[in-house]
Design a binder for these strands. Structure first.
Lengths: 193, 193
DNA sequence: ATAAAAAAATACAAAAAACGTATAGTAGTA
DNA sequence: TACTACTATACGTTTTTTGTATTTTTTTAT
């Protein structure tokens, strides 16, 4: 017996691809089972219901992202480099999620799910806040700025990094991210190095 | 009173965008009405049911495409130019349709719809067949080839024109279409002009 | 201003789909 | 052989969707 049975993995993989495309409302448990070649009983062996499955998937994604985030932060590179990599990570992880599923997660469409998502994303946010506080102590970030202000600006930056209009202005998303982080750290004034 | 009421147009537009994204199975009439800001009663004033609406939409698309096709064919340009433009038209019209909806239309998911679609697309096919027969008479296409063989090859060509692998080989879909029609008309041998 | 037409809102019975569980059975395995 | 993981089927329950009837509101034309 392995820790995660093959069947469970199949369910998760299939459900994820269906949720991503159509959102959770439009995907039934029976459909997931059919696509994953798994009987309904097996599904209920692993998950209480659809919400339970969604939570599990979100947890998994968050956990994976957290680990990647830690890896980025533990590198011996300048702080602004780390931030750039973090943005890139965030963009890739949210990639191709349908507007439908986004609404399910963030808005009140399925209260239990959006609440759960807020919980876990708050935990990740705290990690980030801590890192920025540290950076302030180390003099890598201006001590004048309130941490809440920085987080607010970071949120905006994430949004802009995904803006198609801006992306098309630069050759690649990566180029845009570099510009954005540069702007985030140094403003519009020319740098002295 | 106008020929097509605004409400009807709203329904069609909303339904089309929802069907394109999620397929017809996943979209309910009530949802269409909600999104289109139309009451359910108004929906049933215009359409018998969901299948009726889908048929209507497909008809409209086919009619529009037919007209565009006729416009292409009535131009005073070489026959191979017309074919290139036709392929481009076909690609653009099928653009962004979800795999789900594609299955609904072409496979037996909703028999009434797929049958209906075959009917109308056969009518369009006959237009094309006639044009090719004409082209054979005018000496624009080799008289040695059976018309069924040509249609078969044309079908294949349509498929290849949408193949991502091939598209990425050329800069743009248009470049690929030019190459394909060139191959379709002249084979791999160098042209004499 | 008012009558007629169009659309919305509400309510509802009937049908369909999805849910969750019970039970019996199969295939592989220690 | 007993055990485990899974499948298949069936079934009652709940939820969603459908299609219609009825009443109220809004729009439009006169």
């Amino acid at each position: 017996m392995q820790l995660k049975s093959d069947k469970q993995k199949q369910i998760i993989k299939t459900a994820q691809s269906l949720f991503w495309k159509y959102g959770m409302r439009r995907v039934s448990i029976e459909e997931i089972c059919r696509e994953a070649n798994v009987s309904k009983m097996t599904f209920y062996k692993f998950f209480k219901n659809k919400v339970d499955l969604v939570k599990y998937i979100l947890d998994k994604i968050m956990e994976d992202s957290s680990k990647e985030y830690q890896t980025i932060m533990n590198q011996d590179i300048p702080f602004h480099e780390k931030v750039a990599q973090t943005i890139d990570l965030k963009l890739r992880s949210v990639d191709k999620i349908s507007p439908e599923f986004y609404a399910d997660i963030h808005q009140n469409a399925v209260p239990e799910v959006s609440k759960h998502f807020q919980n876990i994303s708050n935990r990740v946010l705290n990690l980030i806040v801590d890192d920025f506080k540290n950076a302030q102590r180390n003099g890598e970030v201006s001590k004048d700025l309130k941490i809440e202000f920085i987080m607010y600006q970071l949120e905006k930056l994430f949004a802009m990094a995904g803006d198609q209009k801006l992306i098309s202005l630069y050759g690649s998303p990566q180029d845009l991210i570099m510009q954005l982080t540069r702007f985030f750290f140094y403003g519009i004034l020319p740098r002295d190095n």
